[in-house]
C-alpha cells in the first residue's frame, strides 16, 4: 500500500504540471519568445538573454522565454521559424551579420528576405590585434610587412576561411595596395584560441570582433591597432579607427531580431514598439554597459534597407576578393 501512496502524490503533481505546461504555451500579447540559433553561452545567446532580462526587469514584457535551437549553421532555427510561422506570433529570432554572409555562400537556402526584419539592436565592429611586444604599431606597419612578403604576416582568426574576419582584413590590405588573395589566413576554433595564436607568436595579426578582443586585450598582453568603426568609440577611445589611418573601410557586425513571415502588420508594429521601448529602458542600459555593447538601432523598413545595403557591399567585396564565384 505504502509504495502506491508514495507514488500517487508525485503523479498528482505531475498531472498538474502536465496541464500547466501546456497552458503556458497559450499565446498572450505581453509575452516574448526568443529563438536562438545556437547553444547557451555564445554571442547570440548572450544578446537575446540580455535583451530578455532588460524587458522583464523594466516590465516592458511580463513573460520572456528562450529557446536554443542549434544546427545547420543557424539554418535550422530560420527554417523552423518559417515553417511554423502561424504559431510564432510572439517569437523574435536573433541573428547577425554571418546570416548575410552564409546565405550569400549558399550554406542555407533562406536569407533575411524570407523573414520579417524587426530591428537591429547592437553593433560589434571588427578590429585588428597584435601581441603587446609586436613591432607592428599601426595598420600601415602591418600593411608594409604584407607588401614586402605576404608570408611574414600570418593572420589569425576565430572563424573559417571566407568569414567576415577573413575578408575584412583582406579588404583592408587591398586598400593598402596589396593583393587580398595572397593573405595567409589561419583559422582557429574560436576567438580565445586565435588570441593564444598571436600571443605564442605563430601568427602576427588577429582579425576578430571588438567586444571579444577588448575582453582579452584589457589583460594587457595584446594591443588593438585598428577598429572598423566610423569614429572612435566612447567606451574605448584609445583605439584608432581604420578610417583615420587612411583606409576607408567601415564595417559593423550587427545583431538584431527577426519575426516570422506572413504575420499581421499589427503584430509587427507591436514587436517593433516592444523592442524599441525595451532599448530605452534603464535596465537595458545596464545590460549594455555590463557587456560593452554599442547601440545600433535600425527599425523595420530602415533595418531592411540597411540589410540590403550590407548584403550588396559584402557581395561586391567577396566577389572582388574572389571569395564568391
Amino acid at each position: 500500500m505504502k509504495p502506491i501512496a508514495l507514488t500517487l502524490i508525485p503523479s498528482l503533481f505531475a498531472l498538474i504540471a502536465l496541464f500547466s505546461a501546456d497552458i503556458q504555451s497559450a499565446e498572450r500579447l505581453d509575452k516574448i519568445h526568443f529563438l536562438i540559433p545556437a547553444g547557451p553561452g555564445g554571442g547570440w545567446d548572450g544578446t537575446a538573454r540580455g535583451m530578455g532580462e532588460a524587458m522583464r526587469k523594466s516590465e516592458t514584457v511580463s513573460q520572456v522565454s528562450f529557446e536554443n535551437l542549434t544546427g545547420g549553421g543557424g539554418g535550422r532555427a530560420i527554417a523552423k521559424l518559417i515553417e511554423t510561422a502561424p504559431r510564432q506570433q510572439n517569437t523574435l529570432l536573433i541573428n547577425s551579420t554571418p546570416m548575410v554572409v552564409r546565405s550569400l555562400q549558399g550554406i542555407f537556402p533562406q536569407s533575411f528576405r524570407d523573414l520579417q526584419p524587426i530591428a537591429s539592436v547592437i553593433a560589434d565592429y571588427s578590429c585588428f590585434v597584435v601581441a603587446k611586444d609586436s613591432p607592428i604599431q599601426t595598420f600601415a606597419d602591418a600593411a608594409a610587412i604584407f607588401l614586402d612578403d605576404p608570408r611574414n604576416l600570418k593572420a589569425a582568426g576565430g572563424s573559417v576561411k571566407g568569414s567576415t574576419d577573413h575578408f575584412i582584413l583582406a579588404r583592408a590590405l587591398e586598400l593598402a595596395g596589396g593583393s587580398p588573395r595572397k593573405l595567409i589566413y589561419v583559422p582557429y576554433d574560436g576567438g580565445g584560441k586565435a588570441m593564444a595564436g598571436i600571443l605564442t607568436g605563430e601568427s602576427q595579426i588577429l582579425s576578430t570582433g571588438l567586444s571579444e578582443a577588448l575582453d582579452m586585450a584589457r589583460a594587457g598582453e595584446a594591443r588593438i591597432i585598428a577598429v572598423t568603426a566610423p569614429q572612435r568609440l566612447k567606451d574605448a577611445p584609445q583605439i584608432p579607427t581604420l578610417i583615420e589611418q587612411g583606409y576607408d573601410l567601415e564595417f559593423a557586425n550587427w545583431r538584431g531580431f527577426f519575426a516570422a513571415p506572413g504575420l499581421s502588420n499589427e503584430t509587427y508594429e507591436n514587436m517593433m514598439l516592444t523592442v524599441s521601448e525595451a532599448l530605452n529602458t534603464e535596465a537595458f542600459e545596464e545590460v549594455r554597459k555590463r557587456n560593452g555593447w554599442t547601440l545600433l538601432h535600425h527599425e523595420g523598413p530602415e533595418f531592411y534597407s540597411f540589410l540590403e545595403q550590407q548584403e550588396a557591399e559584402i557581395s561586391v567585396l567577396m566577389r572582388q576578393l574572389g571569395f564568391l564565384r
Partner: peptide, 28 residues
Amino acid sequence: WLLMVVLSVSIVSAFALMIGWLGIYLAP
C-alpha cells in the same frame, strides 16, 4: 500496470519541471 503509469508520468513530469526551472524551453 498501475505502477508503470504512475512511475512514468511522475518521473517525466518531475524531469520536465526541473528543465523548466533551469529555463530550458520545451515546445509543446
